[in-house]
């Protein structure tokens, strides 16, 4: 699903170049559950946004389902974000003026899905996260955990194959954080590839793989006593 090959992301800051991501190589197979950990400023979010096709590597290759994202036109990357990738953010980023249902409809609105179908699929996605009774509430009438579940419904309503979650529990109390993670893991068991960026060792421990970032470099942590080499992982497509 995901192949990173010597990926760099460099920002010019004044005269100096800052390397947010340095020489990262990794593979994530379809259906995996991986955690991306590391201190703030280590480049986790930058890497996540590259994976989500919101950003492009400065150098190196990023293959998503075998296609090199850096070479794709903007319109193609928009299509990938629309159909293949779902995002969940720490601060939810629900539009305050729309109801829960309206927020879940949003990706379908831009994809040009008709009104009736939009309503139906959004309602279904809300049912999936257990919020069908909150469909007509606005975000400010929902609890933090409920807001994050609406955001998850929005992220999966287009049936993506990859879900990227940036600190999904970072702004939640322990119990609603647990609910949110349980929901994400359930979706992962149904086949959704899940990558969770987190500070929380407890959350990271729930993932099958833990990728640690430090100062832009990526290291795979050994898990459960069975050490695995860096950037290992099963991948469907071999190097072309």
């Amino acid at each position: 699903m995901i192949e990173l090959d010597d990926v760099w992301r460099t920002y010019p800051v004044g005269e100096v170049e800052v390397h947010a991501v340095r020489a990262v190589s990794a593979r994530i197979a379809g259906g995996e559950h991986a955690a991306l950990v590391g201190p703030s400023g280590s480049g986790k979010s930058t890497l996540l946004h590259i994976l989500g096709c919101l950003d492009r590597p400065t150098r190196g290759r990023y293959l998503f389902k075998g296609r090199e994202v850096g070479q794709l036109a903007e319109a193609e990357r928009t299509r990938l974000r629309r159909h293949d990738i779902g995002f969940v953010f720490q601060f939810f980023h629900l539009l305050p003026r729309l109801t829960a249902l309206g927020n879940v409809e949003l990706p379908m609105l831009f994809a040009g899905v008709g009104r009736e179908e939009r309503r139906e699929r959004a309602a279904q996605a809300l049912r999936r996260v257990g919020l069908e009774r909150r469909a007509h509430h606005r975000p400010d009438q929902l609890s933090g955990g409920e807001r994050q579940r609406v955001a998850i419904a929005r992220a999966v309503v287009m049936s993506p194959s990859l879900l990227l979650a940036d600190e999904p529990t970072g702004n939640l109390d322990r119990s609603s954080g647990g609910e949110v993670m349980a929901l994400l893991e359930e979706m992962n068991r149904e086949g959704l590839t899940l990558l969770v960026v987190t500070h929380d060792p407890a959350i990271a421990a729930r993932a099958r793989r833990v990728l640690r970032m430090d100062d832009g470099r990526l290291v795979e942590e050994a898990k459960g006593g069975s050490p695995s080499p860096p950037a290992a992982g099963v991948t469907g497509a071999g190097d072309p």
Partner: peptide, 13 residues
């Protein structure tokens, strides 16, 4: 943030 979100959910430029 809204603009970023719209792009993330698949709105084109």
């Amino acid at each position: 943030a809204e603009v970023g979100l719209l792009k993330a959910v698949g709105a084109s430029n």
